[in-house]
Design a protein around this nucleic acid. Sequence first.
DNA 1: AGGGTGATGTCAGTTACTGCCATCGACCAT
DNA 2: ATGGTCGATGGCAGTAACTGACATCACCCT
Lengths: 192, 192
Amino acid sequence: MARWEPDAAGRLRQAALDLYAERGYEETTVAEIAARAGLTERTYFRHFADKREVLFHGSTELQEALAAAVEEAPADESPLDAVAFGLRRIGTFFDERRAFSLRRHAVIRSSPELQERELMKRDALVAALVEVLERRGVAPATAALAAESGISVFHLAYARWIEDPDERSYAEHVDETLASLRALTVSPAPTG
Amino acid sequence: MARWEPDAAGRLRQAALDLYAERGYEETTVAEIAARAGLTERTYFRHFADKREVLFHGSTELQEALAAAVEEAPADESPLDAVAFGLRRIGTFFDERRAFSLRRHAVIRSSPELQERELMKRDALVAALVEVLERRGVAPATAALAAESGISVFHLAYARWIEDPDERSYAEHVDETLASLRALTVSPAPTG
DNA sequence: AGGGTGATGTCAGTTACTGCCATCGACCAT
DNA sequence: ATGGTCGATGGCAGTAACTGACATCACCCT
């Protein structure tokens, strides 16, 4: 028999999400999360850097998956299309965890501190895209713009996916959002 | 003679920027900032909500100025053009404070916590733009996309403005960045 | 003169987070 | 099996961000 119950980090994530949802983020202490997971506060901080990070477990994997997917886009795709290619590929990452995503999203929306952290993760996605695009030979200025635009699509598509009563796939929302972006940026209003 | 030295908040902002630049953000305590401003820690927290907020004084004014400027854009401008109109208008806000902006930017870049807060302010700008655009009659989905894209332009233009050795105006960088965005989103690569 | 006001000070308390050392089952080498 | 190392955890003390409650006291108004 193992010395400790397995998957301490997983238990902490579950306890944190539950407590943040039940009582609210600010009203929950790290000691309470640790206690519910059968651990101590000190151990919590060995698994997660701070009180917020416990809700952002998949972000590194997501970032790597997105970067890898964009890397695999056909070489002749435009920067924005390459990003869109990657976004559609990672759709399953969300589609498979819909219930969890809804809960997590509701918790994050309820706390400015958590929103800040989410924005930071979003920014890391932008940086990862810039790196991949530049490696594809895209000029830095263009890469930055394509990455920002791509993550805007990522974000708005996610918001729509969360709210979609029909529960259509994430990839579908990406396609729709990307089409809207293209419609938006056609050159200045036609004369007349 | 006044009971206290005037402009306590201003002194705190100056002290904080100086100390963050000299010693680094993490190595500076709020008590030290307050002491340099001739105040106590408790008084610091009456002027600023937390250790980060002291660096984001102009953000509310900037947000209101941008919203007002977009509001004044000609009614027949496309959503994105209306935002661009607003961005050019607020250019003086930056051009007049170049030295300060450089120092502040260097400090923020050096600390993840400060970057998080800056992303939050950026997000507030997006929200303000969405509100203004919707009031102009733009459909919510389009408004969200135009706001996101517009703030991407805002942000990248700012980064280039900061790094520009020729110190050209902020509005010029907005124009260039916007043109790049339009070039980026033209429909998928032409055949052949 | 006297009372109200507002910016500040003082102090005690909570909680996030960190460094250091102790514990002790598991695992490995002999 | 013996002994030693390892790795995840606990315990504890300490720092610093932030908050609430109350006191102070020049200024202002009447």
